[in-house]
Design a protein around this nucleic acid. Structure first.
Lengths: 338, 338
DNA sequence: TCTGGCACTCGGCCCGGGTGAGTGCCAGGA
DNA sequence: TCCTGGCACTCACCCGGGCCGAGTGCCAGA
């Protein structure tokens, strides 16, 4: 096992490298940190850390930079989560409080997170599968045309147009609406299919076809929208990194455009607690030089969606984790209030 | 006035420069175009074009590149709009046809446009002010809590929660819903305020307060959502440009994040026909080295929103304009069908 | 186990010359 | 009057060499 001091050296290397963006040498380390030993000793420690794969040299005669493995150790053992200052907390609350609807909440969150972390922010819309139904509405737009509107407890709204083969009376529609709502309101989306399964049978022969059509669209919506949506912000922050970065920025931007990739990324994060994926731990190859910090958020105890940031592996992990956690908490509160 | 040949020279310079991304010299011009004269003559023409401000030299002993003014002349006088090939047209239609709701239509459009033009695509959601009301729905979520749902003819849906001071009977609610719809369905959003103005008076004393509350939220929604929404895609295409571009890409990304800026940009575009803004013609300083091609689209004759692309001034104008126009047409069709 | 000393490595920087694309100008010809 | 070929000139770019210095590894001594 690595000695206490060597861990301390690793911590110092990570901190300095994150600050300066330049390989750090043994002399600079002794100058900026009270390690109590000479550069030569540090050099030995660094050699050991390099043997273990925690740090690396870009080229001979340069300082060391942390490897993905080094960051991993740093995050797991050496760094805590840096809490936000209370002005920051107040700013978050103020900023999120003005939101008028779900789109607005998500939009504000993404901007806030990007601004706080100075990185790319990703916020997933509350998931349908984990939400509960607040209301189902059926509107007759035309004799044989119905609009289905689904409203979740998190404020999300989905709508679909339905073309019925045969006209559907206003009373039948009201009837269906009432029965549908009595069965599904307050229930989880995942449970809806079996809750409505036998509904057509309770209608008269004439209406059964149409009822089935409406229900199938409803179920379809549940499936389709399980493809979750998300919002991204702060891509301009990508340009803050290395001069060499043009090569790196392209694949990252491409990955960010692929919402499917991001959703998978967030999906891999743990439901509770914070997940940090560093460099090559990310499966997608465009993101192998970035780290992802993600956390679940929700109106109650349970997470209904996730949010996080994407940044270079060389990032301020404690600060980023603090910001991500704080934002998730406040968003959860806002959702609970609405 | 510039002679015919000199215009031809300008056209050739623009075309070559767009293709090669390198300053073009007199010799290369005569080799790649049948201009019928020698390089020396071309040099004289180029000198004249430079005097007039249509082209410039990055440095002595380099070829010429078009200025913003040169591109302007090219777009206005020298270039047409290049129609898409029929496979391309078919691809557009196929790609857009699968859309399930408005978000999906806009999302697909933005991806399509980014892919076709290989540039950054911007698509505005159909504007509320120019849309007509398809339906207004009022849902009682709790005794004193009502959800307002607004549906437009373009498929856009807006919802708001309303806290009423006093409970509101189900019958009164149904009554209000019916009267509201009979007044505003099929009308333009802009006309709604005066159409509902006198509604509270026709209710009994007890309900007037609540009716007013509901109406005020409705009107508020109309105002707030006049802040239009939009979607962006293809930012990864920004990285295709110059190696020097890292300096330029930052402000562009920042400008793209400011939806307000983009909306203003689109707003400045003409309602009918295509608008091209080149380089410094764009007011926003982050976009002075980009061009914007925008066009209105809508389900009928009238534009309900705009879409376009943002790219480097050095872009293939005829091709880009062709793609933008074609996409706008197809999106209009899709909206008309839904 | 730590420390100071020492030789070594190698990326970054500056410098200077060679190369070539492209220009402007000019005198002669259609 | 307009076009053409010729010619001298200008620079950006490329390349190789030499210097510099930060940083290293190793070793002998405390």
């Amino acid at each position: 096992m690595l000695s206490e001091r060597r861990l301390e050296v690793l911590r110092a290397i990570v901190q300095d490298y994150v600050g300066t963006e330049e390989p750090v040498g043994s002399k600079a380390l002794t100058e900026r940190h009270q390690l109590g030993v000479s550069p030569a000793t540090i050099r030995n420690d660094m050699a050991a850390l390099e043997d273990e794969g925690f740090i690396a040299q870009p080229h001979t005669s340069a300082g060391r930079i942390p490897t993905d493995k080094g960051y991993r150790l740093f995050v797991d053992k050496l760094a805590g989560v840096k809490p936000l200052s209370s002005p920051e907390r107040r700013a978050i609350q103020n900023f999120l409080d003005g939101a008028v609807d779900l789109d607005d909440v998500v939009g504000r969150t993404v901007r806030l997170l990007a601004q706080l972390t100075r990185q790319v922010a990703v916020v997933q819309y509350p998931s349908l599968t984990r939400s509960t139904v607040r209301h189902v509405e059926l509107l007759a737009l035309a004799p044989a045309r119905v609009m289905l509107v689904l409203i979740t407890d998190t404020g999300r709204v989905e709508q679909r147009l339905i073309d019925c083969q045969t006209p559907f009376g206003e009373t039948s529609l009201a009837d269906l609406r009432a029965r549908l709502n009595s069965r599904v309101v307050g229930r989880r989306f995942a449970d809806v299919p079996q809750l409505v399964q036998d509904l057509p049978e309770s209608f008269e022969q004439d209406d059964r076809g149409t009822v089935s059509t409406v229900l199938s669209v409803l179920l379809e919506t549940l499936v389709e929208e399980t493809e979750e949506r998300l919002m991204i912000g702060g891509t301009a922050n990508l340009t803050r990194f290395g001069h060499d970065f043009p090569l790196t920025i392209r694949p990252v931007l491409e990955a960010l455009e692929e919402h499917v990739v991001l959703l998978k990324l967030l999906g891999e994060a743990k439901d509770s607690g914070m997940t940090v994926r560093i460099g090559h731990e990310n499966a997608h190859e465009g993101l192998t030089s970035t780290s992802v910090v993600a956390v679940g958020y929700g109106s109650g105890d349970e997470a209904v969606a996730k949010l996080g940031v994407v940044g270079p592996t060389r990032m301020d992990y404690p600060g980023t984790m603090g910001a991500v956690r704080a934002v998730a908490r406040y968003v959860g509160q806002i959702l609970a209030e609405s």
